[in-house]
Design a protein around this nucleic acid. Structure first.
Length: 456
RNA sequence: GUGGUUGUAGCUCAGUUGGUUAGAGCGCCUGAUUGUGGUUCAGGAGGUCGUCGGUUCGAGACCGAUCUUCCACCCCA
């Protein structure tokens, strides 16, 4: 055998069955996005490097796929960077474009670039692949789809409320029980850092705090100490390691802890507002939880932070996330444009639904009826029926070759086609079609109109 | 980027301390059955043992490099 072709690490091929299942999820997402009034946009697969670089932190820059310039790109590179093998400096000289890393930054660029055409507040959704030069592992790929809904141009917290309802609607339609939307607020995290006198170590503080469920209280304390956060500061923040109870209980604890922090109190106020509205409106499928340790997400979140946890019975990281960013478009020169948005991780949602066996049979519907091909005259007779059936909306096809019957029948069998039609000389003479149900084995002769009626 | 792990037929995997011609199940093809698939029976095809190099009289097995798989870290959907 010839050497096997392959695909790059962290990428995947999708079979017809997998595409059908993915489309099932995408259709539910799209339907709900539109039901909530979001409009679709699409942006290029690659952007100018300077649009992306520096927007995701140092780690993010490393994970961005850079595209080599066309032509003799080395001729423009500086001798100094070449001879010193300075990869970072050289990159900007030989690469001016990069693959999209997420959908939020391109969206911010889109908003700034099209600000005069857009009517604000603007709500858009976007379902496209993104690429990260990460090391793959379970549920982590180098090419994967993000499904984002964002709203810009409104400070109203009703947007946050709406996004929680959107999560509820989508996971309800998917039949995925046990999903928890965890919510926090950047202002709370800022307030905590401020209260304990470590405001300048906010990022280190939150990154360590975020790992609580993974490395435990001791691990978090150890990491905080390593990052230079003082023992007394840690003592003061310890109560949040052990918060419990419902949303309101946690708020009470936070109120006590953040009584002296203006920004912290603002965060509490926001969370309380959102929770009150959600309680009044009710949720049907998901549950909403306040998670003070939730700090995940990009540095640009300024208000609400969301993370969607898969049902506990499946071992899977987050299947979605989002938050409020007051100044995302600021980096592209458009000030005072607040945005808030959420993302659905299609590939991970797929894995969860697959693991829980929640794909409905209807997600896989293919051809319903295959006509067996007996030869020239017979196939034309069949094609006439195929045309009428298709006009009636019945998925049908004719086997293209007059192959052996066993081959044609087993083809129908393997493709899970429910019915076959056998039409030879005898049927043509009587102007009928022999319909066979592949499941039961039943056969009957029907006229074309009876055939359509039978299958509708 | 750091550490570990994996790779043998289309798929899932055996293969003893290095020893003749590398196996199984499933799948595939042909026939039993020239207008009847899924079951059964008989037969058949299919391998550069990831790749390159090394050790050895001899390598699927040992060593090195590289690619790939999966896992942990970092980070993240």
């Amino acid at each position: 055998m010839a050497q096997k072709p392959s695909i790059p690490k962290g990428t995947r091929d999708f079979s017809p069955e997998e595409v059908s299942k993915r489309n099932y999820i995408i259709n539910i997402l799209r339907h709900n996005f539109e039901l909530f009034g979001f409009q679709p946009i699409e942006t290029p697969s690659f952007e100018n490097s300077n649009t992306l670089m520096g927007k995701y932190g140092e780690e993010g820059d490393r994970l961005i796929f850079k595209i080599l310039n066309s032509g003799d790109y080395l001729s423009k590179a500086s001798e100094a960077n070449l001879s010193f093998k300075d990869s970072n400096a050289l990159t900007s000289e030989i690469s001016e474009k990069a693959l999209r890393y997420d959908l939020t930054v391109p969206f911010a660029r889109y908003v700034v670039q099209h600000q005069n055409e857009i009517d604000f507040p603007f709500k858009r959704y976007q379902i496209q692949p993104v690429w990260r030069a990460d090391r793959p592992q379970k549920g982590r790929f180098r090419e994967f789809f993000q499904c984002d809904a964002d709203a810009v141009g409104s400070d109203s917290l009703l947007q946050e409320v709406t996004f929680i309802q959107l999560y509820d609607a989508v996971f309800g339609d998917l039949g995925l029980e046990g999903v928890t939307v965890k919510m926090n607020n950047r202002k709370i995290l800022s307030g905590l850092a401020e209260t304990i006198g470590e405001a300048d170590k906010l990022i280190d503080f939150t990154v360590a705090l975020d790992k609580l469920d993974k490395i435990g209280e001791e691990g978090v304390i150890k990491e905080m100490l390593e990052k230079g956060i003082s023992q007394t500061a840690i003592e003061r923040v310890k109560p949040i390691f052990r918060v419990h109870g419902n949303f309101a209980d946690k708020l009470i604890l936070l109120k006590a802890l953040l009584a002296d922090s203006v920004i912290g109190k603002k965060g509490i106020e926001e969370l309380e507002y959102i929770n009150t509205k959600i309680e009044a409106l009710g949720l049907s499928t998901i549950s909403l939880d306040l998670d003070v340790t939730l700090a995940r997400g990009l540095n640009y979140y300024t208000g609400a932070i969301f993370e969607v946890a898969a049902p506990k019975i499946v071992a899977m990281g987050s299947i979605g996330g989002g938050g409020r960013y007051d100044d995302l478009t600021g980096i592209f020169g458009l000030k005072n444009m607040s945005g808030v948005g959420i993302s659905f991780g299609l590939d991970r949602i797929y894995l969860v639904i697959e693991e829980l066996d929640l794909f409905p049979a209807q997600a896989l519907k293919g051809t319903k009826l295959l006509f067996i091909n007996f030869g020239e005259t017979e196939s034309l007779y069949c094609l006439k029926a195929v045309k009428k059936l298709r006009e009636a909306g019945i998925t049908s096809e004719l086997y293209p070759d007059a192959a052996k019957m066993k081959k044609q029948m087993s083809h129908a069998d393997k493709r899970n086609i429910q019915f076959v039609v056998l039409a030879g000389a005898e049927e043509i003479e009587q102007d009928v079609y022999t319909l066979k149900n592949m499941k039961t084995g039943d056969q009957k002769r029907l006229s074309i109109s009876e055939l359509i009626q039978e299958l509708n």
